[in-house]
Design a protein around this nucleic acid. Structure first.
Lengths: 340, 340
DNA sequence: CTGTTAGCGCATTCAG
DNA sequence: CTGAATGCGCTAACAG
């Protein structure tokens, strides 16, 4: 007869307590609040846990304590490479604090965002992170009612649902236009995704430039392939195109490849600027000029804010601008043509 | 005085029932099992839900019903692009069935896998998906004890913890070596990641080839940059290198870029083969020969199996081989050198 | 079709 | 430092 018969029914804290010879609540405290329990008792409880193979039930714990130790994250689509470092940093930081992430994809669809938010909230997450801003008014209202910390990310607004960590896409667009202007380029084009944030960058670009430029809008996801097609479209609109801004590094890479295939030299014939500073951007040939946004930092900061609020601390700054930076590399290294 | 005073305390099903003038359980059934309730009643309950702004509490529901409607997913790292389509397909399929995904990252660390599994199981997921095979023996044991459906993915084994959906990495390696041989190439090299699955592909390659080849092993993540460095290392080992197999398309892309930078023509001077058939592979210049693995299909199949088991159905086939396919493109289009 | 009764497993009161 | 009672919000059983 084996010494530790495999328990068939699920082991509860009750069993652990019995095994350790203490009361239920003492066992509970030994595991969840050891400061209140004597060392010897903790020891015995831990042994009992090992002996019984006890696994806590956070559903039960959460029901009573009103802390689920879960954070909901809604992103448009996980495959959008942009959000990946954010989600990863978030997952890591939260895990260290004992929280887990429940992931949902809104698919850029407002109705789905509403539905999904509902199911997420039914899990009683202690906090929620959005990739982007909350688009639907209904959802904004519901989130406020829910009374949990909410961090919107990858964007900026003066009126977040609760908190926001990101940067100004309008300024990004403006900065790129300014950079292009400073180079003396005038035959500009844009290859841009169809999402809201890309559209705002386009706005900023146009505003600073003072006029519109040939634009190829591609449906999500904005891939290398889309970039190749986009350059074709742009050249059809303006065969003398001199510089292109792309709303993602993936697309910029496509533009690079397509340019090469067409015998255009980058940057001598065509300058290319991307967005996001993906891991490969610095290592392309030519290396890609792009806009660096620290996605991991966004995730980390979001986690910090959420955790602080979950601990009951006040967060002084509800709008955090993490900024961006144009990283100049070889793909825009050409000097402007001599004037006159 | 507003007609619908904002409820400050959280609304429970009790409130809904009162508002609808029915008993608690009837309200519960109207929402969760409408087949058992009259149409008129359902109607009234739904109105009450809307009026009160009720959001169900799945923690409570799960505690009682022993169905959390959550599925835990453990991946080595979300940023590993390979798993993305799988996670996405999984999330989608599960969401449609009313399940949500809790995501965890093991970081390729066995100890962390164990810890994480513990916290995951405390949430009482109805099922669990692993990216890869469960590495730790402790974890395998615990999963068996947990008694929930488990799907391991992206690999194959005769002894899954429960179910497995993937393909044989050994065969992949063998197939690529066979393909290279059929081209008549002999000066071969390999740029490979340091994870288990990549190592097995290498094994298969070597086995079929019958001898070892110059190899550059890069630490995860296997990026474009790593590919560039790897080609440098390989050329240092064999300046007359004729063909390279890379354990990811990202790395293969790096090899392409580095070859270009060194004035090597692909495929005339150097043939390149990747792995994964990433979205960009077909659109590189030259287009990348690679091994197609349908990551989304893996996620979908995993969801199917899990959901079937959650519905109590038996799953006849616990080992599902979704196979792979070498997709020949321009990067290996060169003919073998004439013999003699 | 509807209602009553009895917990799910744990953590928060309160008392010692 | 430890314990006894109480109920978190909901649903599975049974009864009507």
């Amino acid at each position: 007869m084996p010494t530790s018969p495999t328990p068939r029914k699920t082991v509860t804290l009750h069993d652990v307590a019995r095994e350790a010879g203490v009361s239920l609540i003492t066992a509970s405290r030994a595991l969840g609040n050891p400061a209140l329990v004597s060392k010897a008792t903790i020891e015995r409880v831990q042994q009992a846990v090992a002996a019984t193979g006890y696994i806590p039930n956070l559903l039960a714990g959460g029901l009573k304590s009103k802390r689920s130790l879960m954070v909901a994250a809604l992103v448009p689509n996980i495959s959008v490479a942009q959000f990946l470092p954010t989600v990863q940093a978030l997952t890591d930081a939260l895990e260290q604090a004992g929280y887990q992430l429940i992931l949902g994809q809104t698919g850029y669809d407002r109705a789905r965002e509403d539905t999904l938010l509902g199911t997420m909230l039914s899990r009683r997450p202690d906090a929620l992170v959005m990739g982007g801003l909350v688009a639907s008014q209904t959802s904004r209202e519901r989130l406020r009612q829910a009374g949990i910390p909410v961090v919107e990310t990858w964007d900026l607004t003066d009126h977040p649902v609760d908190m926001v960590v990101g940067f100004s896409h309008l300024k990004v667009g403006g900065a790129i236009a300014g950079y292009f202007l400073s180079k003396g380029w005038t035959r500009l084009g844009m290859a841009t995704g169809d999402d809201q944030r890309a559209a705002v960058r386009r706005e900023g670009f146009i505003a600073t430039l003072g006029r519109d430029v040939p634009t190829a809008v591609v449906k999500a996801p904005s891939t290398l392939e889309a970039g190749r097609r986009a350059l074709g479209e742009l050249l059809a609109q303006d065969a003398g195109l001199r510089a292109v801004y792309c709303s993602s590094d993936q697309m910029a890479q496509g533009v690079l490849v397509e340019a090469l295939a067409r015998g255009l030299r980058v940057p001598q014939d065509l300058a290319v600027c991307g967005f996001g500073d993906a891991d490969f951007a610095a290592h392309l040939e030519p290396a890609l000029t792009t806009v660096r946004v620290d996605g991991a930092a966004i995730g980390l900061k979001a986690a910090e804010l959420l955790l602080a609020r979950c601990r009951g601390e006040a967060v002084p700054q509800r709008v955090v601008d993490l900024g961006f930076r144009i990283v100049e590399r070889a793909s825009t290294a050409a000097a402007a043509p001599a004037p006159g």
